[in-house]
Design a protein around this nucleic acid. Structure first.
Lengths: 143, 143
DNA sequence: ATAGCTGCAAATGCTTTGCAAGGCC
DNA sequence: GGCCTTGCAAAGCATTTGCAGCTAT
């Protein structure tokens, strides 16, 4: 009787469960909620606060600290990527392949489609170092 | 007698004075000090705190708030450029021409020489917007 | 059982702001 | 004199941390 009820509630989390377990993360209730919101649809760009707000709108309330902890755990596990494009807040991107971003006048992010931007030449890295990543940001303004 | 003494002390500030006045900024004592440190030599990348520390080492002590005010005034006047490459602090760059940056493992910035990096293709900006700037960051790691 | 999470609240670090006093034109 | 800037301290924000209690394995 518990079983039946539980399975109805938990089925939607099955994908999230696999995702977390596969990444070596404990599938806690909080993380499952977050993963479901993050990875249900296509690529997303959001801040911890935006995500906490979404959680809240879905009827659960998570402390911001927990949301940060989870997001960092996800990022460490390779499920998310942190993007630093403005000095004030951290964006988390569910799209983890190398790609670049538009930043609009309000500071919102959008992916630049793969292949739409291309480098013709890269400098050599300074002595004793190597290039780890290339990040291109195109800042937009309204016409 | 005042005259002579003053001129000896103020001569080093002549260039800074012209710079500020030319940019429409009042050449206050604090700004002159800062401008002298910032623009004496080649391109520099620093944070408000680093600059305040330098001021202190030169025998004057400026509140951080004043340093921030001055840096923002300089940036508004086009003497500096703010660079957001990490989510925690704001870098100020004395090099105002369009150019790109290396960010090393410690978060320190270095200019990428003009021409060492080149774009082959840019995406179209989304509807109703246009590209204002292109910012490329090459993150480095130690080998 | 136990290593790892969560919740909460306090702490942190950078940056901004308010406002009275001071300085430049 | 009038407006802008400074100094100082307090406030603001996003983020992190400490720690007791909980939970997944």
């Amino acid at each position: 009787m518990e079983m039946t009820h539980a399975s109805v509630e938990e089925r939607p989390y099955a994908a999230a469960q696999r995702l977390l377990t596969g990444a070596g993360l404990r599938p806690t209730r909080q993380r499952l909620h977050l993963a479901r919101l993050l990875f249900a649809d296509g690529p997303r760009h959001l801040t911890a606060e935006m995500l906490a707000q979404e959680v809240y709108e879905h009827g659960l309330k998570l402390p911001l600290g927990t949301v940060y902890n989870a997001l960092h755990a996800f990022a460490r596990a390779g499920l998310l990527r942190e993007v630093a494009v403005d000095g004030t807040r951290t964006w988390f991107d569910t799209h983890t392949e190398p790609h670049h971003h538009f930043v609009d006048a309000n500071g919102r992010l959008a992916d630049i489609p793969a292949g739409a931007i291309e480098l013709a030449r890269l400098p050599a890295a300074p002595e004793g170092q190597e290039i780890q990543s290339v990040e291109i940001v195109l800042r937009l303004k309204r016409i």
